[in-house]
């Protein structure tokens, strides 16, 4: 029987948007049955338009590099103190577009593309019903193909899964 993988996606920033979709699409390509349970801040990753951002202020180890210019310039890790960057208006938007550009340059698919691949490969994307109610999401806010369930339904699958991850 094929392997099963159960993922809980609880984070909604851009850097945390990639791992669940990357691992899920890869596992599905390896013929595993995959379910991702989107809860708390992971829930917006199921919206029609993904507007996830990344904030350097909350990620002290995040390198600040420029995805353009000569190689030596790109190698510079800009020493911008996080205590400062956190207070500069628009800094997170800039860091977000730089990260997207960097990923694009390196041939990494966008989060939206990875999500589409997951659906095409039969990954089950589950929205946490409770979180939806708490944060005021409705079924129509999410893309087609999303399923809706609670913790018990997910755990019933996770109990039989070979790989269980929380992200």
């Amino acid at each position: 029987m094929g392997k099963k993988m159960a993922i809980i996606a609880a984070q909604g920033s851009l850097d945390w948007a990639y791992p669940p979709f990357i691992l899920a699409s890869t596992a599905a390509a390896m013929d595993m049955e995959v379910k991702i349970f989107f809860t708390f801040y992971g829930l917006p990753l199921l919206k029609h338009k993904i507007s996830a951002k990344v904030t350097p202020a909350a990620n002290p180890a995040m390198p600040m590099k420029m995805p353009f210019g000569p190689k030596a310039f790109q190698a510079i890790d800009w020493p911008i103190p996080h205590a400062v960057s956190g207070f500069i208006p628009g800094f997170d938007s800039m860091a977000t577009s730089l990260m997207k550009k960097q990923f694009k340059n390196k041939g990494v698919a966008t989060v939206t593309e990875l999500r589409e691949m997951c659906l095409a490969l039969g990954v089950d994307l589950i929205a946490c019903q409770m979180t939806m109610d708490v944060f005021g999401f409705e079924e129509k806010d999410f893309i087609e193909g999303v399923n809706f369930a609670g913790a018990a339904a997910f755990l019933d699958f996770a109990a039989e899964a070979d790989i269980q991850l929380m992200m």
Binding site: I22, L23, S25, T26, A28, A29, M30, K106, G107, V108, A109, L114, M117, L121
Partner: peptide, 10 residues
């Protein structure tokens, strides 16, 4: 880049 080669090959 990862995971595209595997996913596209599949």
């Amino acid at each position: 880049s990862c995971p595209l080669p595997v996913v596209k090959s599949k």
